[in-house]
């Protein structure tokens, strides 16, 4: 479904991905963990076609993302949604207008149908009361849920989550993590989650991969990661000061 084949990416002299390989199956939730600034978001953006590799290939359902024509990219993106770290809601629009955006801009549905779908998605995420509020009037957790409602409007097969729980309190983090699980359970969505929140990673992931030094140093089930012998992974998941990882 999603495949990275020997992907290399550098920004100036800084090598972020160096021979990155990964294969995510249909309906699977894969979590990439790693330090801040290590390149997790860079990897995620390659799937969305927002970044292109220096070399290597990124495939989504067998279609090569890097080098895809604008038409092919549009078709791919119609089946894909990204939950950005900040929510990326349009500030001057209400919650309802933000959620309606993917459909209202393309004018594929009558307004009544769009309104019905907006109510349905907001109801699903328990946001009915916030419909007429603007993003500045709602909390961080609500923003993430509104952004998720907007993603769901186009019924995507793939959802990419960029740090979905960052900046949220533990309860709200669990609410968002549960929603990610729900998306997989109820809609069969394939998910790529990028996070350094280990509690959330263990809760949502079918498999977890640790990104370090430009590649995945270990990939395994949550249980395998929890009981790992790999010094890098062990230091990271336990938050230990001593070990091979140095603060960047």
């Amino acid at each position: 479904m999603i495949e990275f084949v020997d992907v290399h990416k550098s920004f100036g002299p800084k090598r972020v991905l160096g021979g990155f390989n990964l294969s995510i199956e249909k309906g699977e939730t894969f979590v990439i963990i790693g330090q801040s600034g290590i390149g997790k978001t860079v990897a995620l953006r390659h799937v969305a076609g927002l970044l292109h590799p220096d070399s290597g290939t990124v495939l989504v359902e067998g279609v090569q993302v890097n080098g895809a024509s604008p038409g092919t990219m549009r078709k791919l993106r119609e089946r894909m949604g990204v939950l950005f770290q900040s929510g990326a809601l349009i500030n001057w629009m209400t919650v309802a207008e933000n959620v309606a955006l993917p459909l209202s801009e393309h004018r594929r549905f009558p307004k009544k149908e769009i309104d019905r779908l907006v109510d349905e998605k907001l109801g699903l995420l328990e946001l009915g009361d916030a419909k007429q509020k603007t993003p500045s009037e709602i909390s961080g957790g609500m923003k993430k849920r509104v952004a998720l409602a907007r993603v769901l409007m186009s019924n995507p097969d793939i959802i990419l989550y960029d740090e979905p729980t960052t900046g949220l309190d533990p309860v709200m983090s669990m609410v968002i993590s549960d929603l990610i699980r729900q998306m997989q359970r109820d809609f069969g969505v394939t998910s790529l989650v990028v996070t350094h929140d280990m509690k959330s990673a263990f809760h949502v992931g079918d498999r977890i991969g640790m990104l370090y030094g430009g590649e995945l140093v270990q990939v395994g089930s949550p249980e395998e990661i929890m009981n790992t012998e790999n010094a890098v992974v062990r230091q990271f998941i336990n938050g230990e000061l001593e070990g091979p990882i140095r603060a960047q």
Binding site: A48, L50, G81, V82, A88, I90, R150
Partner: peptide
């Protein structure tokens, strides 16, 4: 909007930032 990923979010919804 650019630095807070809103432009990328538009791109992901196949909404042209130039048009929007």
């Amino acid at each position: 909007m650019k630095v807070y990923d809103e432009i990328d979010a538009l791109e992901m919804m196949s909404i042209s930032p130039v048009k929007f």
